[in-house]
């Protein structure tokens, strides 16, 4: 396998009863790239994503991360290896403050989560500093002490991204990061995703519906339709691809690009 590939899937399939939600999908995510998975509703994007992140395991096929097989590796171990993910509906601890949310991840990373004694002194300061750094990155510093439940949808998503970063991943998987967001919030998230690569040097794989977002962010796009890969290429290749146009995009969506 190609060593420059950070995450690779080969012939991954996933069934639900008799339905083949993901059918022999292969993908290669190059280190340092921003890669998008697109497709119409029910194309199997999220299911595919879940097999990559170990939310459940594929029925057949292989998944490798940095060359080592992770097909049936427990999800929490993938995080330890350096993967991070967000969910379509922001997956946060709504009853806790923004700071406490991110602190959970920071403590997990620092190996403090299992301890009975709360961190004190210098250690505590190091952890607090790290939380501030992460909240600064997603621009949530001002909301630090607010309950996550009080934040807007976009705020919760940013909090979730900060939490995903708290485990210091090299690859982040974002499942429809723009789902349910207002247009202004979308721009904020686009900036953050761009910064993930530019400022933190991370590799990003994301599922997205919003074509404007995909075409302005992604360097490589994989199109799924009915569980299969329909096409793969650069944004301009995908925009020019007749099959993709017919199956999914519709002419107008791309004529604006």
């Amino acid at each position: 396998m190609d060593s420059a590939m950070m995450l690779e899937a080969r012939g991954v399939s996933k069934f639900f009863g008799g339905v083949k939600a993901v059918d022999e999908v292969s993908i290669g995510v190059r280190e340092g790239s921003i890669h998008a998975v697109i497709g119409p509703n029910g194309a199997g994007k999220t299911t595919f994503f879940n097999t990559l992140s170990g939310f459940y395991f594929p029925d057949s096929g292989r998944v490798t991360y940095r060359g080592s097989e992770i097909t049936r590796l427990a999800n929490w171990k993938r995080i330890v290896l350096g993967m991070g993910r967000t969910f379509q509906t922001p997956s946060v601890f709504a009853e806790l403050t923004v700071r406490e949310n991110v602190m959970l991840g920071v403590r997990a990373r620092a190996g403090v989560a299992f301890r009975l004694r709360p961190p004190a002194g210098e250690e505590r300061e190091t952890l607090e500093h790290r939380v501030d750094e992460l909240l600064g990155f997603v621009n949530l510093g001002r909301s630090k002490e607010r309950l996550v439940a009080e934040l807007s949808h976009g705020g919760q998503r940013l909090c979730e991204i900060a939490m995903s970063l708290s485990t210091e991943p090299s690859l982040v998987l974002l499942d429809e990061p723009m789902a349910g967001l207002a247009e202004t919030e979308t721009d904020r998230i686009i900036t953050v995703i761009r910064d993930l690569r530019q400022r933190l040097g991370l590799t990003v794989l994301f599922v997205e519906h919003n074509m404007r977002v995909v075409l302005s962010l992604a360097e490589r796009i994989t199109v799924l339709d009915r569980g299969k890969v329909l096409a793969e290429g650069t944004p301009s290749e995908i925009a020019a691809n007749e099959i993709v146009r017919d199956a999914y995009l519709g002419k107008e969506a791309l004529d604006h690009v």
Binding site: W76, G84, S91, A113, F114, S164
Partner: peptide
């Protein structure tokens, strides 16, 4: 605090790399 987090959202706790 991690136990409380498990009550609220176990999947997220696992995706913070905790068993």
């Amino acid at each position: 605090r991690t136990l409380v987090a498990i009550r609220q959202n176990e999947a997220r706790v696992r995706y913070l790399g905790l068993n």
